[in-house]
Design a protein around this nucleic acid. Sequence first.
DNA 1: TTGTAAGCGTTATCAT
DNA 2: ATGATAACGCTTACAA
Lengths: 342, 342
Amino acid sequence: MAITIRDIAKKAGVGVATVSRVLNNKGYVSEEIRAKVQSIIDDSAYIPNSNAKSLRAHSGRNIGLFVKGITNPFFNRMIRIIEEKCVLRGYMLIVRNVDEHENELEIAIQEGRASGLSGVILMGGSFDYSEKQFVRLGLPIVLVTISAGADVSPALYSSVLIDDEKEGYKAAKYLIELGHRKIGFIYNPGVEKTTTNGLRFQGYCRALKESGIPYNPALVADSSTATLYTGYATGFNAARSIYSRCPDLTGIVAFSDVLALGAMKGLFSLGLRIPDNISVVGFDGIEAGEYYQPSLDTVIQPAGEIALSSIEFLFSMILGGEAQHLVYDAVLARRGSCKRIE
Amino acid sequence: MAITIRDIAKKAGVGVATVSRVLNNKGYVSEEIRAKVQSIIDDSAYIPNSNAKSLRAHSGRNIGLFVKGITNPFFNRMIRIIEEKCVLRGYMLIVRNVDEHENELEIAIQEGRASGLSGVILMGGSFDYSEKQFVRLGLPIVLVTISAGADVSPALYSSVLIDDEKEGYKAAKYLIELGHRKIGFIYNPGVEKTTTNGLRFQGYCRALKESGIPYNPALVADSSTATLYTGYATGFNAARSIYSRCPDLTGIVAFSDVLALGAMKGLFSLGLRIPDNISVVGFDGIEAGEYYQPSLDTVIQPAGEIALSSIEFLFSMILGGEAQHLVYDAVLARRGSCKRIE
DNA sequence: TTGTAAGCGTTATCAT
DNA sequence: ATGATAACGCTTACAA
């Protein structure tokens, strides 16, 4: 059995309340006794039981992070930052992966209540949560890289994200301005409407339209190439499949850097050169893209800022603050995977 | 205030013990009462307070995973698997990143005691833990990709890893057999002795020695290129620095795939071609290496198996089983980043 | 088969 | 300034 506050009290010849006061620097304790108790605490390797604390305080110090696709390197950097901030504030971060077909908010509701989380962060996923769900959750929550539907009161949740439609437009526009007309798009079809995925695709469509380029479905990844996990392999297969349909395409926009890198490898496997034969632009700004050969042109999301704002918003809500919403701008980095054509 | 077991008992007109029995399917409860209580539980949206449970049980259903370098993509796949298995068994996985200069076991001891973990997994880190520390931890623990010193009783911890010295040897030997003699080594110097890092380096040295190749420190990454986090940039800088010292080198062994990819980019930046001018072999087997151009030759660790064995060993210990130890074999994959030379 | 009551380790209230 | 003591919500002897 671990050593308790009562053991300390006994050793010090004082009451438990006094020890508690020393521990928490609360209330009156004579300097003499404080020193004595403290020294006993120190060399007793006493560690307060956080369960008892939480029981007493009616709240734990756990934060649940529900990630749709935890292996996504873009999420990873953010998770690391969030975790660090949690530790700094004495909270534990419980990270939980959510499978593609699972509803992240439902899972958060279940686990949140069961394990006494004091706050929830949802990273990735869809945009279609209902107001009822937030009420049912009854916990401070921050949506990261996503948002809730327009019909949900913004007071019920905080959110930090980029404008996916706008940035998708930016990526496609970039290629168009470089003179490209036959531009492919690789993403995860099937979950079009209410995801980051679908919004960026809409941006791509708008850019085409605006430039008078007709939409050609053969240039877009079809569901036959889509798997549940949109990893390198998805990009690889999608690029090969699009190229086989449209060998005259000159550029590809990918929904994520991982997809873009997979696509580049797919193009290489076909004997093509980048950017000489085909230009590729990605999304996110992961390190692997920077170190690829050629370095990947990409729409960089400010991952660090997004992560910091998210955890800040959450703590603010935990302390009783209002919900907050923030939309960051993404930046297009030109590094070598795209080329101007005539 | 949330609804408690006492509220349920009152509503059902029974004692709290009966409700508890229904909740946990333990002890005798008449079918009649069970049904009644259950229905009340159901439409009361009652959720047991996990803190009270844990306090009572002297340990929660939490497992602590302490990762030295959580952004390492190789670790990531394993974390995902471990997390999934935890959820399946009704445990929560608390993932905690450990900074380079922190002692992972010490942190585990602190947090473990404080928050009533029921088991601990250490991923990455060093090999020099003392028997005292394990005793102090007093919790089931599994070391993943690492081990404890030879002076620590194997009964105190489980471990799952590969033979790093042997596999380091394998990587270097591979290049030697391809005819290379001037072979660089990129790793994280400074933490040589008791880490995965150092062991692979020893394997490299043994391979050289065995083939009568003199050890040349100019071919090895020096500490000036090392940063705390051994990411892409470290590999990038190390490769450039080694090349500037020894432009006649023909091969490089990197301690990890991330380092290897960074190194390749560094070589590309110098106008070199891979594998035509220089061969590169990595370590781990991450996806990014497979999709790099050229695909990275690497010593693949069986990440899935390692993860599964780890969590299995931990649960076995939690249930009172003995400590177990397992050393997996790694496999060298030849994919295109190495070339035979005369 | 069921209910009462004693803890689990804290903190906070109240006397002293 | 300090020390009993009563919660917090749960499980589990033990009694009925």
